[in-house]
């Protein structure tokens, strides 16, 4: 595994005197192999962005370990942290706030040069910038020298991906990077990510709330709810045969243009399977009455078929 999360937990202190604990992420385990494209799917408040930020060392881990190429990332300091960022980068949801509004957009490139390539001469650096802009399908003449508010959301997101490519990264955390974009540009950015994976062998953690996007693009998927992974596995398997009731609910809620909501619900009901509790999902779970354990024990993630895991007591009973 080149990236590995082991029992990663994040607790935020909330309440007036910091007396209450909010478990944003709880005992999350997963790994990524090199060149893999994995989706982390969850709704707002599920902890999906917190996981991304912990991997990027922007938020600290309360307990558990995140390892990159066998090294605990929390131990990185100065030079080793810089080396880490040379290989691992992130792009976030809101493209406009990723730019310092008083500087031109190119500033994000300049920062990369100053920090990572201080010795490179300007000519060579310019070539490198042109190359990476080309790689994300931007015309350097059109985008360089502009202020962020003069560029479109799609251009800004590509620009940030280009920034990451300047570093020869091998892992990218893409947190909801297309949810603010219009449908017509959305798909281009998504295709770009997939191309980069193919061409450069980039590993990508694609964080999204949209199942159809997750399906379109990723090899493996994880379904997150209230800080816990409820189901994970090969994308096709999860979509063809969603086992956790929450995954089913998500599947039934995605607006699609080929089937109406009622049809999807009916289909999923046919495939009905049973469930559990202690389970984070039990309050909203549609199968609650059928299972007593749910109140008592947290269901563990269990492999139900090859490369397809689900955390649901109902699945253990089979």
């Amino acid at each position: 595994m080149f990236l590995n999360l082991d029992k990663v937990t994040k607790v935020f202190k909330t309440g007036t005197f910091g007396g209450q604990d909010l478990h944003a992420v709880e005992d999350v385990d997963f790994g990524l192999t090199e060149g893999e494209f994995v989706s982390l799917i969850g709704e707002s408040g599920s902890g999906k962005s917190t996981i991304g930020r912990m991997i990027l060392r922007l938020t600290s881990v309360t307990s558990g370990v995140i390892e990159y190429r066998g090294k605990d990332i929390s131990e990185f300091r100065r030079q080793s942290l810089k080396d880490y960022y040379r290989q691992v980068q992130g792009v976030f949801q809101e493209p406009f706030s990723a730019y310092n509004p008083i500087f031109k957009a190119d500033r994000v490139f300049r920062n990369v040069k100053d920090e990572f390539f201080p010795e490179m001469d300007n000519g060579r650096w310019q070539d490198k910038v042109q190359d990476s802009l080309g790689a994300v399908g931007l015309n350097p003449d059109q985008v360089l020298g502009n202020y962020p508010h003069q560029l479109s959301g799609g251009q800004l997101q590509r620009f940030l991906i280009a920034r990451a490519l300047l570093l020869d990264i091998d892992f990218l955390v893409a947190d909801e990077i297309i949810s603010m974009l219009d449908a017509s540009t959305r798909i281009d950015v998504l295709n770009l990510l997939a191309d980069l994976k193919e061409r450069e062998g980039l590993s990508i953690l694609f964080i999204t709330h949209d199942l159809s996007l997750g399906y379109y693009i990723s090899e493996r998927a994880m379904i997150l709810y209230s800080g816990r992974i409820l189901e994970k596995g090969v994308t096709e398997k999860i979509f063809r045969n969603p086992l956790h009731p929450y995954t089913k609910l998500l599947m039934a809620s995605v607006p699609r243009i080929d089937k109406k909501w009622e049809e999807v619900e009916a289909e999923l009901e046919e495939k009905q399977s049973d469930i559990d509790s202690g389970c984070v999902y039990r309050d909203r779970c549609s199968f609650q009455e059928k299972c007593k354990q749910c109140e008592e024990a947290r269901p563990e993630l269990r492999e139900v078929e090859e490369n397809h895991y689900v955390a649901c007591h109902a699945q253990e009973e089979d």
């Binding site: 930020r53 990027l56 060392r57 922007l58 100065r78 942290l81 810089k82 880490y84 960022y85 980068q89 992130g90 976030f92 809101e94 706030s97 990723a98 730019y99 310092n100 994000v108 920062n111 990369v112 100053d114 920090e115 990572f116 940030l160 920034r163």
Partner: peptide
């Protein structure tokens, strides 16, 4: 976010 972008250069 731009502060996060800067942090991700190890500044």
């Amino acid at each position: 976010n731009f502060i996060d972008m800067a942090r991700m250069t190890g500044m």
